[in-house]
Structures are given as structure tokens and as C-alpha cells.
């Protein structure tokens, strides 16, 4: 029997336009969804449960608005949903500290998370959490098989590597060849009724604070050409002007 945890984060829909209000991004009009890689983490967690038995708990750190991402996870099939209440922006040290304290209290065998969140793009949470727990970790998994230990495939220089990963461990999930299951009607009904277990944990002060947000520097307009013959000129410019070949 395994006690399986999956981390899910609510992020702006990746199709959404990001706008600024003053020097901060303004997400008030933006639709929020589960971070895309977290869908693969949820799928992997459910496959782990099917292979080894046990229960899956989805955890998010956020304010009440983030309950929706937990309900989404519940509709797909997780057993329990936990929100660690926080309305501040936490730096990686603070976020991982609160996650580590809750994971520790749950006696878990394994944590799955996304390889990176669609907002931060960082990829810090999985390995950082593992270090704080003293667990093994593998990042960017494209395939997991379940047994006494996990067998995890990740990209490595020149190909892929298969790792033997003793439990407990944290695995951050990439897409690989995985197909994720969609919620069914029964799941959606259950999710509606499900109660979110809200926990509060003290977070250490952040030493990385947001100063400002800005739009990416505009690229100067490029050169444009009509017709395939221009490829010759472009090739030459790549050498003479851009200096890249």
C-alpha cells in the first residue's frame, strides 16, 4: 500500500494573454487551469496507485481560489485534496519548507509533481522538496514503472537514462508518451461534494522578493523576404550579420 502525493498548481491558461497593470502582471481577467505538467504528475500518481495499491493525495499551496485545481484533480481520480493556505508569494525556500512539513506529517512514500510550473518555469520544487526530506529525486521523468523501487526514464546527454529510484522519492514529470485520463461524470459529481482539507503552516520569510514585472523587450522588426530564392541571402546574413554559422 502506498501513500502517494501529487503536487498541483493553479496557473494562468497557457493561451491567455498576460497584461501588466503598472509594474505588476494583472491576472484578474485570466482563466486559471492546472499547470500542464501537473496533469502528467496526476496521471503518474494514479498509475502508481493502480500498480501498487494505496491512496493519492493532491496538495496545492495557495489561497481559496486554488481550490478549483484540487477539485479538478479530484474529478480525475485522486482520493484526498489538501490546500496549504497561503496568499503571499513565497520564494522557493518558503514554498518548499511548507510543503516539506506537510509531506512529512503525512508519512508518504512518494511525491509526484510537474517538471516545471507554467508560470515560474523553474523546475525547482521537486528536487528542492526531495533534498529537504532527505529523499531521492529524479527530474523530467518521461516514463515511470512501479515496483519495490521505481524505474524512471529521463533524457540524458546523447539519449535517455533509466534510473533505479529507491522510495521514498520525489519524481518530477514531463509528458513522455503519456496519455492523461479525463474526468468522467461520476468523478465530477464527487469532486463537487469533496471537502478541501485546508491546513496552515508557518512559512519562513522570503529572501527573494519581487521588484517588478515587465513585458519582454520588443524585438526589433526583422527582415522579411518573398520567395524561396531569398534563402541564399538569408544564409549569407546568418554568417556575415548575425555571426551564428
Amino acid at each position: 500500500m502506498s501513500n502517494i502525493i501529487v503536487l498541483v498548481k493553479q496557473v494562468p491558461d497557457t493561451n491567455a494573454r498576460i497584461v501588466l497593470s503598472g509594474d505588476r502582471v494583472d491576472l484578474s481577467a485570466v482563466k486559471k487551469v492546472m499547470s500542464p505538467y501537473d496533469e502528467f504528475a496526476v496521471e503518474t500518481a494514479l498509475q502508481h496507485r493502480e500498480a501498487n495499491g494505496g491512496e493519492v493525495t493532491a496538495i496545492t499551496v495557495g489561497d481559496a481560489g486554488a481550490d478549483k485545481v484540487l477539485k479538478d484533480a479530484k474529478a480525475i481520480g485522486v482520493d484526498h485534496i489538501v490546500r496549504i493556505d497561503s496568499s503571499e508569494s513565497l520564494d522557493s525556500n518558503a514554498l518548499q519548507t511548507v510543503l516539506a512539513s506537510v509531506v512529512k506529517s503525512m508519512n508518504a512514500n512518494v511525491v509526484y509533481c510537474g517538471k516545471s510550473a507554467a508560470d515560474t518555469g523553474a523546475g525547482s520544487t521537486g528536487p528542492g522538496l526531495a533534498e529537504r526530506l532527505g529523499w531521492a529525486s529524479v527530474s523530467n521523468s518521461i516514463s515511470v514503472s512501479f515496483g519495490e523501487q521505481l524505474s524512471v526514464i529521463t533524457p540524458s546527454a546523447g539519449g535517455n537514462a533509466r534510473y533505479n529510484v529507491p522510495l521514498p522519492a520525489v519524481v518530477s514529470c514531463d509528458k513522455g508518451d503519456m496519455k492523461v485520463r479525463k474526468p468522467n461524470v461520476k468523478g465530477i459529481m464527487q469532486a463537487k461534494r469533496a471537502k478541501v482539507d485546508v491546513q496552515t503552516v508557518d512559512a519562513p520569510a522570503s529572501t527573494v522578493s519581487v521588484v517588478s514585472h515587465s513585458m519582454p523587450p520588443a524585438k526589433p522588426a526583422g527582415k522579411s523576404y518573398e520567395g524561396g530564392a531569398a534563402a541564399a541571402e538569408v544564409a549569407q546574413l546568418l554568417r556575415d550579420e548575425a555571426n551564428v554559422i
Partner: peptide, 26 residues
């Protein structure tokens, strides 16, 4: 094209052979 430093409006069937032969000689 809004993000390209060099944009070529053409089919690949037209552009790639030219690109290939220019690069090969370069």
C-alpha cells in the same frame, strides 16, 4: 514572422533546396 529576425515567405519546397545548397557551399 513577428518574432523572426529573418522571415522568408515561401513554401519549404522552394526555400529549403536553396538554403541547403547555399549552406553546403558556405
Amino acid at each position: 514572422f513577428q518574432h523572426a529576425d529573418y522571415g522568408i515567405v515561401a513554401t519549404w519546397e522552394e526555400a529549403l533546396p536553396v538554403l541547403q545548397s547555399t549552406l553546403s557551399s558556405m
